[in-house]
Amino acid sequence: MNLTLKVWRQKSDKDKGRFVEYKLNDVSPDVSFLEMLDVLNQDIIHQGHDPIAFDHDCREGICGSCSMVINGSAHGPDKATTTCQLHMRRFKDGEVIHVEPFRAKAFPIHKDLMVDRSAFDRIQQAGGYVSVNTGNAPDANAIPVSKEYSDMAFDAAACIGCGACVASCKNASAMLFVSAKVSHLSLLPQGAPEKHERVLKMVAQMDKEGFGNCTVTGACEAACPKEITLENIARMNREFLGGFAVKRK
């Protein structure tokens, strides 16, 4: 198949950036989107130009490195899919594809399609953990956890921290990410003792990073490659308001 790619090229955060058009011929429908970019990059290098920079690593949908918006959708048109799992058979011959980086003030652009998502690490540092030192753990079966809650915690913990929620939200809000982290730990008895402290601190850090607010559009949920649900945001709101109400200092 033949394609026209319009790829966002930007040298650094300070540079202004623009779309550059590339024509691709004979793209195999069986290659992944990133492999298609690999092929394009090989051509670019042979022509003596700077290849397109993009983050990628595991290429099996779990590391959360991909950070592209394809035709307006984070990770492309398919649900529950990361860019690396997207295959070219999903596109039509002759299609024009816009490829842009995740855009948010809290995710400054490093180069081309590479963005800085360290804000997520800082949010995690603010309280996204259970305070247990190595060697302090009781036997793993000492505290039973209901299967229902364990499964719910897992559903939230499936978040791969890619930032597609931020990228797809019209407000660049990180609520889905933060709520997934908050829910994962607060749903388990191990994380419960710190649940109020945790949610208050993580939300405060989220706000500090300059993410937008939640308008409950559900765009994040639709874009999430791991299908994290809005229910987590409601839970986070609930726990935040509860924590805010009962916290003594």
């Binding site: 247990v132 897992f154 913990a157």
Partner: peptide, 11 residues
């Protein structure tokens, strides 16, 4: 250790 950290192992 992992369970104490909140790793949601299958149950």
């Amino acid at each position: 250790q992992c369970v104490a950290q909140g790793v949601p192992f299958a149950r």
